[in-house]
Design a protein around this nucleic acid. Structure first.
Lengths: 130, 130
DNA sequence: TTTATTATTGACTATTAAGTCAAAAAACAT
DNA sequence: ATGTTTTTTGACTTAATAGTCAATAATAAA
């Protein structure tokens, strides 16, 4: 009972994922997330608690529902660069992801994704998912 | 002529590099750099112009004088994650670095460094260089 | 010693950030 | 309808940030 959520959580998480992928965790501001989702700050905080909560929800959504997408790998890399060393919850999530991957080529996969994401060799990074 | 610099630029760049490696570019505040170097904000800005100028100087110092160190690879990865897609100068520096590397195993090297740096598998990330 | 030049100092400004909350709105139960 | 619960709203607070600058200090040339 009570008022219903005005948004579809999965859709909102996908929109937030795109922002996190483009700007990283620290580089993403709440204003960017507000603009991308169309929701207001209060709604985002009511739903996810904190900016970190938003990232974790987006990361889980991707790992669970878009397992082998580039977006998932990018989010994992962002987590590794910015959060794994200081946040045990994120570390555990990434560690679980890591163990579901074929160990033979995981390092190569990460390196390739990093290079891809940076846009170092290709053209301009338009921030869109593939 | 005029007053001499009170610091050795190379030493200062090494200290700044350690901070950037530990916290990333966005995650590094001027206060952290001030504490790590022992210099004051004004001196850092007089010497390097901007926070980005500090990072670029640290990146160049590492690429030129510590070519094959883990620190250099970490700084390159930070640059790839946070700056390459939006800053042509950084992109060019990283691209040059990239072309000096053996192409056969560069992706694997990047993936391994990323994993290493994250501390996902090993113990706790104490932020020290190796 | 005087003058020109460059570096240091650190308080200050302006901007941006994450997070809060009281009030209003929407939905359901009785 | 009335009351209860949950969500939305968006202005507000608090804290942190990058960057500035006038005053001072140190150096060397004239």
């Amino acid at each position: 009972m009570g008022r219903r959520k005005s948004f579809n959580e999965s859709e909102v998480l996908n929109k937030m994922s795109m922002v996190f992928i483009q700007y990283g965790f620290e580089g993403t501001s709440l204003d960017l997330l507000v603009n991308a989702t169309g929701l207001l700050r209060g709604s985002l905080y009511a739903a996810f608690g904190s900016k970190l909560g938003m990232f974790i929800a987006a990361l889980k959504e991707n790992i669970n529902h878009r397992k082998d997408s580039f977006g998932t790998t990018y989010l994992v890399i962002i987590a590794m660069m910015e959060l794994v060393s200081t946040n045990v919850e994120v570390k555990q999530i990434v560690l679980n992801w890591y163990h579901t991957k074929p160990q033979a080529d995981i390092e190569l996969t990460l390196g390739r994704a990093l290079l891809n994401k940076s846009g170092l060799l290709g053209g301009i990074d338009d921030g869109k998912q593939s």
